[in-house]
Every structure is written in C-alpha cells, then in structure tokens.
Design a protein around this nucleic acid. Structure first.
Lengths: 152, 152
DNA sequence: GTAACCCCTGACATCAATGTCAGGGTCAAG
DNA sequence: CTTGACCCTGACATTGATGTCAGGGGTTAC
C-alpha cells in the first residue's frame, strides 16, 4: 500500500506520515522504485498515533511507549509505561486547566468591573497594584499543533 | 530612568521591554547618547502589559486596546474595546478548557481500562475503532510564552 | 587608562507538527 | 510521447515572546 492510500485511510496527511517515519514511530519497507510500502498494521498504527497526538502527546512521548502497545485482533495489551505516560499527561493537562481557570477568573473580574458603568472600579487586571517584580509563568500548552490544530 | 531600572521595577526583562517598544506598546524618549529614557508612567504601563500577557493576550491584541485604558491616580477608565477584547479572550479560554476537559476524560478512560489488570479491555484511546479519517483539531493555546512561561 | 557596569542594534534560537515549494523520478493511460 | 497523478528528498515557513550572542559604545570609579 502506498503512502497516499494510508493518508486517505487514516486522515493523516502524507507529510505527517513521512514525519512519523522520520521520528521512528513507524517503519516502512521500500519498493524497488523507492516508494514506501505499508500494510494494514501500519494503517492501524497511524490511526493510533493520530489519536495520541490529538490527546496532546508529542511524537517524542509517543515513541517512549508506542512499542509497548500490542494489539491482537479485538484486544489491546499495554505495559506500565503506557499508563505512566498517560498519568503524566493527565497531570500536565490538569495544571493547564488550573492555569486557564485562574486566567478566566481574572478576566471575569475585569469584565464585571468594566460593566459597572462608571469608572471608579479598579479591577485587579487593570490595577497597577502588583508590587512583586517576579515574573510568573504560564505553561506553554503542549497540545496538538499543526495540521491537527484549529484555524481560528 | 534607564531601561535596566524599568526592568527591575516591573519584573520584565530588558529584552522584553525593548520588544514592547518595537511593537508599539510603549514609547521611550532618547537621551543624547541614544539610551532610552523612561518615566514613572512607563513603569505602570510595562506592569500592565505584563499582566495582560500573563492573562494570555498577545502584544498584537494588547495594542488594539491599550490606548483605551486611562488611569488617573487610583482610577482606571476603559472604553468598550477593552471589555470586547476581554470577552473574546474569555471565550477562547473556555474553548481551550473544554478541549482540555475532553482530553482529560479520554485519558481517564484509558487509565481506568489499563488498571483493569487483564488486557481484554480496549479503551477508546487505544482502540483502533475510529473510522472517520477526519483530522480533528486542538486550538493552539494562545497563552503567554517566553520569559513569562514556566519551565517544566 | 582600565575594569566593571550599563546601553545600543541586529540576528539567530526556541517549541513541534505540519504546510508548502522546488526539483526531480515513476508509471499507466491516452 | 505526452499528460496526469502519484512518489521521492530536502529545505524553509508557521507561532510569538523571550533568551542569547556578537560587535560596538557610554559612564563611572578606581
């Protein structure tokens, strides 16, 4: 099966599939003319990789546990690495959610203050009360990007 | 006041302050030797910009409404643009939170299945049941980056 | 005059998956 | 033989605030 077929059957772009091969997530044999040759198992694998990426794993992370997932027909067996990676990702996501929630609250406070017609209110967001010069931080959201990412 | 002093008093790096000037968020007069010269108002402004960035606004977004914020001593007045921008950001954050929540749920499902010792369970995350080849998407999180961002 | 700071500009690096283009093959149908 | 639809590799672009370096100059205290 050629790469274009795999792309159609998985929803991943040809470019992405080549990328997955380059970073070692999949392997492809070559035909005499140099074309990559895939089989049914590769289709399943690429789909799995797509799901992992949509879950927020990077290809580097996926590489650490992908070989730990064995699927016989109708059954999936995993080794502990998989769960460990999932727990880490879960914790990261919860950190991000907490951060977003904080920001959300501050935005709400500002909006509430701004809706109070007159201007005497000094919402935290706009106030220049912050005294500590320590730059805080937001985690950069390690989620999916590129093709899999929304446009707006 | 020189740029290094502003940096110390705001927590922003010298590099960032120069950047804010380049993108038009702040203006600095120049001394004869070419050094930037800032005043007290600039300190407040840089702090405000830092807060906005930590809230997840980009400098480009900030530029659209920063000139709409007027602060007399102890009072902040804003025009409608500010609230509008905040509402947009709020909506974006809520979209991101919903996305994270979806991912979180899927991770939890996988973890639950994986903890069921034996391997007959086929969690959604790992299953290759997905038939539609449509690549979904995650919004790229437009939040704060760089200096203000966490390391881990 | 020289060390030790500070300032200046401009440019490249970071993250990570993907898009996209250039330049070039392969192959089957007409 | 030509057209069209594939395939290949390699490289650059995207995001966006910030780090960091190079190369050069100012200022101050010793």
């Amino acid at each position: 099966m050629k790469i274009g077929d795999v792309a159609k059957r998985t929803g991943a772009s040809v470019r992405s599939i080549r990328h997955y091969e380059k970073v070692g997530l999949i392997r492809a044999t070559r035909e005499e003319n140099g074309y990559r040759d895939f089989d049914e198992a590769d289709v399943l694998l690429v789909r799995r990789i797509g799901r992992m990426i949509r879950l927020g794993f990077t290809t580097e992370e996926i590489a650490t546990f992908l070989n730990c997932i064995v699927d016989d027909p109708a059954t999936v067996t995993t080794c502990p690495k998989v769960a460990a990676a999932h727990r880490l990702k879960l914790a990261a996501i919860e950190r991000q959610m907490a951060d977003l929630e904080t920001r959300r609250q501050k935005l709400l406070i500002t909006l509430k203050a701004a809706s109070g017609q007159d201007d005497t209110s000094v919402p935290e967001t706009l106030a220049h009360a912050e005294t500590n010069p320590i730059a805080l931080a937001h985690p950069r959201h390690p989620g999916a990007r590129g093709l899999f990412r929304r446009r707006g």
